Simulated scan of single mutants.
Amino acid sequence: MKKHLLVAIGALMIAGGAHAQDLDILGKIKSSGTIVEGVRESSGLSYTLGNGKYAGFHYDVCAHVISDIQKHLGLEKLTIKYQPVTSQNRVPLVSNGTVDIECGSTTNNEARARDVAFANTTFVEEVRIAVKKDSGIKSIEDLTGKTIATTTGTTSVQTLRKHKAAENVKFREVYGKDHADSFLLLETGRADAFIMDGSILAANIAKSRNPGNYAIVGEVLAVEPIAIMLPKDPAFKKVVDDSLKSLFETGELEKIYDKWFLKPIPPAGVVINLPLSQSTKDAWANPNDKPAEAYNN
């Protein structure tokens, strides 16, 4: 009986794998007249304004891409359905085709690429440390005996542990359910530092009650390519990559970047003040979908 059960389970797994490889996202979008966009509630690149409205750098990038998808499919109208995703559920929802295009702040890495595809890199992130200015923390070594906050479902603490300077550093970990919650742990003194992508740290500091109380300090822990996450459908990825190519070549992507990182943004009109990095410029000049491992080896 156990043998029959194992055979049945194996058959289901094979069928599930085959189904995942056979996703026809363009056909699904054309037949339904709807595209499901994965969005984040509190990311540095995609966040909510409330009442079902979203904004951010990656949100604007995806608006351009979705418009090009509509043109490619010859649709007079394409309805966008927004699906909020979290660090924990974003990969499964994209992998099984529930979400057609995820426009949050997801790192392209080898582990995730086994289940999903990534468009060409649109933002190269640096993982950093945010602290209160009066904390005395200036580097990784200063984290000894401290409490470190990060967000459930992200890889930041693992990245810290792999850093050479952290070999003998002992610290305690606490987890926020999302980035805003993780920053709240730092803000309320339940954590001494918040480890996360620099853009996310900068955005949360800019939106805090007292931005001047915080600083991003220490070594760059890792460099991570951020990209639009897609189901494994090569035809769909090509349409998305072709759309991004036009943004790279026309300079429109830099205008979108300036809008969200160097100018006042909604809802409070804060300025994140995060200049465009050379790594991001290079990714735009040489379009690629290389994973994080290619950057950090």
Rank of each mutant, 00 (worst) to 15 (best):
D100C: 01
W284D: 04
S139C: 07
N273P: 06
D142Y: 03
L5M: 09
T34S: 04
K3I: 15
S42F: 11
A165D: 01
K162E: 08
P287Y: 15
A268N: 12
E125I: 12
E252R: 00
T280K: 15
T280F: 12
M229R: 05
G176P: 00
N297T: 15
G136S: 06
T122Y: 09
K71I: 04
L12F: 06
P84Q: 06
S279V: 12
D192A: 07
K81S: 05
G97I: 01
A20N: 00
T86P: 03
I69H: 01
Q158E: 15
G10S: 12
T154Y: 13
L221G: 00
P291R: 09
G56P: 06
G50F: 05
L185V: 00
R128K: 10
N210F: 07
K81D: 11
Y295T: 14
K207T: 11
P266A: 11
S87K: 14
A222Y: 05
T107P: 13
K238V: 03
D289I: 14
S208M: 01
L201A: 07
H19K: 06
K177E: 08
L26S: 13
Y214R: 00
E141Y: 09
F118R: 08
G153L: 06
A285H: 09
G189Y: 00
A117Y: 09
N168G: 12
A206D: 04
N51G: 08
E252V: 07
E293D: 15
L45E: 11
K245D: 12
V174W: 03
K207N: 15
L244P: 02
G153M: 08
D178F: 05
H64I: 06
K263G: 13
K81M: 08
F118G: 14
S95A: 12
S87M: 11
L247W: 00
D241S: 06
A63P: 01
T250W: 01
L75Y: 07
T154N: 10
H58V: 08
V240S: 02
S46L: 13
N51H: 14
G10F: 11
F57G: 12
I200A: 12
G17Q: 05
A292E: 14
D289M: 13
A235I: 01
